[in-house]
């Protein structure tokens, strides 16, 4: 291999690795939105899932159990969101913010109660790369695409599966119809309530995995506020991807690319004050919204509660 190829491969590999929390959190947001449930608690759900997922892995010595517990936590928050908005018809933004607060609070409270303050942070092993037999031996591409941790494969598979499910199955069509025009869906005998619960819970679980990915891949431990706005960025990514699974997957490459760039330029010693590089992901996202927000197609009933007793729109 020549000199230029190795850094390029590492760079591409790093982008795919960084893409995962964006993809999962954004697909979770998209799924809920497709039935009209607009989750804005991502940041809180990711934090509390990262915290609990980390603690469970630490005590059970099993990353698998840690990931499952993070999914359960995320699903539980999704269930709460669905219950308060679908059943009790409370304002989606307000409930989302309340769940965000609870997530943030629990995420710092639980490690303090369970582990306390320690001089050296408690560590869990990070997820290992799993090379896919044969495919990982392909020069160039093999190392980038087929020698990653399991959640990188998982994120891509989930995205493709969601595309197939939403666009190629009749159940997916019914599901989408509840977010576009619930009255029509309801009149066809599709249960808007069931669809909303289902997507909010599964969406929450995906956001939960996105959260626990951070301690499991990046740090090996939980630190306060470690999500660093990725939950909010995921909402922007969802709009950027036009609430479509494959577009979100592609869009996440851009978000991950900016994060990797910001990090790489910081360590390269370019002379640019590192604080401005820290701003880059957020500023780039705002800029992207300027260019894509108007053209983004959003589910027709996004963020609104459906009441079948109410007359028309």
């Amino acid at each position: 291999m020549t000199g230029i190829e190795t850094p390029l491969i590492l760079y591409a590999k790093l982008i795919l690795l960084t893409m995962v929390p964006f993809v999962l959190a954004s697909q979770g947001t998209m799924l809920g939105g497709r039935t009209g449930v607009f989750n804005v608690a991502q940041e809180g759900i990711m934090l509390v899932s990262a915290s609990i997922g980390f603690l469970v892995s630490f005590y059970s010595k099993s990353l698998t159990i840690g990931v499952i517990s993070a999914m359960l936590v995320g699903g539980l928050f999704g269930l709460a969101l669905a219950y308060f908005t679908t059943h009790l018809k409370m304002d989606q933004f307000v409930i989302g913010l309340a769940l965000f607060f609870i997530g943030v609070g629990l995420s710092t409270l639980l490690p303090k109660l369970m582990i306390g303050v320690t001089l050296t942070p408690p560590l869990i092993p990070t997820l290992k790369d799993i090379p896919i037999p044969l495919l990982s031996k392909i020069p160039f591409i093999g190392e980038i695409f087929f020698n990653q941790n399991i959640l990188v494969y998982g994120a891509v598979l989930v995205s493709v599966f969601l595309w197939w499910f939403l666009y190629k199955t009749s159940f997916g069509l019914s599901l989408r119809s509840t977010g576009e025009y619930p009255q029509a869906a309801d009149s066809l005998g599709i249960s808007v309530t069931t669809m909303r619960y289902l997507t909010a819970i599964v969406g929450g679980a995906l956001i939960g995995i996105a959260g626990v990915y951070l301690p499991m891949v990046y740090t090996g431990t939980f630190t306060d506020g470690m999500v660093k706005g990725r939950g909010w960025l995921a909402i922007a990514l969802t709009f950027f991807g036009g609430w479509k699974p494959i577009n979100i997957l592609i869009g996440s490459l851009f978000f991950a690319g900016i994060e990797v760039l910001s990090y790489k330029v910081q360590v390269s010693g370019s002379g640019i004050p590192y604080q401005f590089l820290l701003m880059l992901p957020y500023l780039a996202t705002i800029l992207v919204m300027v260019f894509t927000f108007k053209r983004s197609t959003i589910p027709g009933f996004l963020g609104q509660n459906y009441d079948r007793e109410k007359r028309s729109l």
């Binding site: 804005v40 933004f93 660093k228 706005g229 909010w232 960025l233 909402i235 922007a236 709009f239 004050p273 604080q275 401005f276 820290l278 701003m279 957020y282 500023l283 996202t285 705002i286 919204m289 300027v290 927000f293 108007k294």
Partner: peptide, 27 residues
């Protein structure tokens, strides 16, 4: 202004600018 000119959801922009301000105060 972003809301006025481009109709961009203010929840996202106000939150994201918080993170920009963290770097700014450090600078």
């Amino acid at each position: 202004w972003l809301l006025y000119k481009f109709n961009i959801n203010e929840i996202l922009t106000t939150v994201l600018l918080n993170f920009v301000s963290f770097a700014l105060i450090n600078y």
